[in-house]
Simulated assay, not measured.
Amino acid sequence: MKFLLAAVFIVYMYFLIRIILFKGAPVSIQSLWEQVGRMLEHSDRMFNRQGNYVPFKEISRGLEHLSLSDPFSSLNLVGNLLAFIPFGMIVPMLLSQKVRLFQKVFMLSLALSLSFEVTQLVLYIGTFDVDDLILNTSGGVVGYAIYRLSVSSGLFTTISKRC
């Protein structure tokens, strides 16, 4: 059962990387190497990039635009949250040590989101957004809450015991 869960996690991570780093395009190592080359040729531009370094700035703006029915802002807010919910649900089932699961899920969600944001910044394939960190990490926490509720209701008990 753990093998199947690990396979599901790998497929999920592939699609998460494809959506966040490649913006839905097929994953291409060649294009990443080309981007690394461009970044090395113009490494100074990494520090001249626009981004959001103010917590809740884009979240607030997105919530204001929700009332105006701007589909992009709601997609960005909801999408960043939803993208990490499976992470928060699968990680606890994969961890063999069940101590301090909340802290582990929180830290792993934050670390994964931070690695995506830094990769986007360094490779110039997106912009750094601190609100994405907040939303992604919150998604991981929501996923963990769903996991805990499912375990307490008995839904994941069989799965957890087998893993």
Rank of each mutant, 00 (worst) to 15 (best):
V142M: 07
S28M: 13
N136E: 14
K98F: 08
F156W: 10
T158I: 11
V141W: 05
M46V: 15
M89P: 03
G62M: 07
L110T: 06
L66H: 05
L21K: 06
T119H: 05
A111K: 07
L114E: 14
R49D: 15
A145W: 00
L63N: 04
V118G: 01
S67I: 09
L112Q: 05
L94H: 01
L82W: 09
R45P: 14
S109Y: 05
Q97K: 11
A111M: 15
Q97C: 14
V27R: 13
Y144P: 12
K57W: 06
F84V: 13
G140R: 02
G140A: 08
L112G: 05
G62C: 07
K104W: 11
S113W: 10
K23P: 00
N80Q: 10
E34H: 04
T137C: 08
L114T: 11
V118T: 01
S96H: 15
H65A: 12
F116L: 10
V105A: 00
L75H: 10
S74R: 07
N136D: 13
N80I: 14
P55K: 03
S152A: 06
V27D: 05
L123Q: 05
L66D: 05
P92S: 03
L110V: 09
L108M: 05
L114K: 06
L149K: 03
S152F: 04
E64S: 09
N80A: 13
S109M: 07
D132M: 01
V130L: 00
F56W: 04
Q35H: 15
F106W: 15
M107P: 01
L82D: 10
K98Y: 10
F87S: 05
P55R: 03
E34D: 07
F22H: 02
S69Q: 15
L63E: 04
F128T: 00
S69H: 13
V151T: 10
L121Y: 00
F128K: 02
Y53D: 06
R38F: 05
N80S: 12
A83Y: 15
F116I: 11
V27H: 12
G154A: 11
V36W: 13
V151K: 07
S115F: 11
S96M: 09
R100Q: 13
T157F: 08
N80E: 14
P71R: 15
D129N: 13
V91Y: 07
N48W: 09
H42G: 11
L123A: 06
F72W: 07
T127E: 12
T127L: 07
A145E: 00
D44E: 12
F156V: 12
K57R: 14
G51M: 03
L108C: 03
D129V: 07
V54C: 06
L95M: 15
L108Y: 03
K104M: 13
I59M: 04
W33R: 08
R100I: 10
M93P: 11
F116M: 10
M39T: 10
S67A: 10
A83K: 13
G154W: 11
P92L: 01
L123D: 07
V78Y: 13
G37I: 08
S153K: 08
F128H: 02
N52C: 13
Q120T: 03
D131P: 02
L110G: 06
F102M: 05
A25T: 14
S109L: 05
M89I: 11
W33L: 13
I29A: 15
